[in-house]
Design a protein around this nucleic acid. Structure first.
Lengths: 142, 142
DNA sequence: GTCGTTAGTTGTTTTTGTCAACCAAATACA
DNA sequence: TGTATTTGGTTGACAAAAACAACTAACGAC
């Protein structure tokens, strides 16, 4: 891949990180840190059930996670119940507060997306979205 | 903007943070933290000259920045010289080491981009890049 | 020259994260 | 079965990253 193209990708990366950083500050106004809101999200939307799964997914220290979860329990965002099938592990679920907070976060993120697309015509919005789609499908993960 | 589209954008955001932002972990293998490498980058490529400008751009605590800069000076990456036009402020420049390190970081980022695009045809690469271009031109910043 | 502002520093504290030792339940296996 | 190993999670001790507030010295306005 030649230098020009690499440069364009680099520039896009900077651009997008800069933009995303706005939409990434989900926690703002919710009393949660970025990590905490990520945990709620993974527990609820991706159906992760145990600390162990979170550790594997997020590549985070298990001791630290243990404390963060403890704090989330104390503050009423999640509940931990012992798994009867394996009494070492605790199953994580969101409380009503946790659920509502996650909704707030999502709503706020949506507003930021709206803000980002403000002033574009429907046709342009569709084009941006299909460009995103294209990138997502083409770029090599693993 | 309807829910479906917002959802796609949200997904793209997650995808993008997960993947391309990998190329943002510049610091790996250079002895610099992410913040430090960002500072070098802003000083050199964006021609920021004072701690004050960095504080404004990066929304970072000035006390903390002061210490980080001090450490970068001590470790030989940057130099601070008193601005004769305003003896309160110090002008920041990269040393040779700082400059070389920044080059290494950029090279490494380029390799990661290459890796990401591995296996795509030239035509596909061009399509991805023009999709990026399109997004960048259309999406509303500020 | 005095006063409010500004650039940067420093002391103190909080938050975030790492590392290693630990406990109890589960699994392996002789 | 009984013992050894592994696994899910907790805890203590510590290090690094970052926030907060008080401070100094130079600057600008008047």
């Amino acid at each position: 891949m030649d230098a020009d193209k690499i440069n364009e990708v680099r520039e896009f990366n900077r651009f997008y990180t800069r933009t995303l950083q706005l939409t990434n500050k989900y926690h703002l106004g919710t009393g949660l840190t970025v990590l905490e809101s990520r945990l709620l999200l993974e527990i609820y939307e991706n159906k992760l059930q145990t600390a162990n799964e979170l550790v594997a997914l997020l590549d985070i220290d298990k001791g630290y996670l243990s404390r963060v979860l403890k704090s989330l329990v104390k503050r009423g965002y999640i509940e931990q119940t012992i798994d009867n099938a394996d009494k070492r592990s605790k199953l994580l679920t969101l409380t009503v507060l946790g659920h509502n907070t996650l909704n707030t976060i999502n709503k706020r993120a949506d507003q930021q997306v709206d803000q980002l697309f403000k002033g574009l015509s429907d046709q342009e919005i569709n084009q941006v979205i299909s460009a995103m789609d294209f990138i997502q499908n083409k770029v090599n993960l693993d």
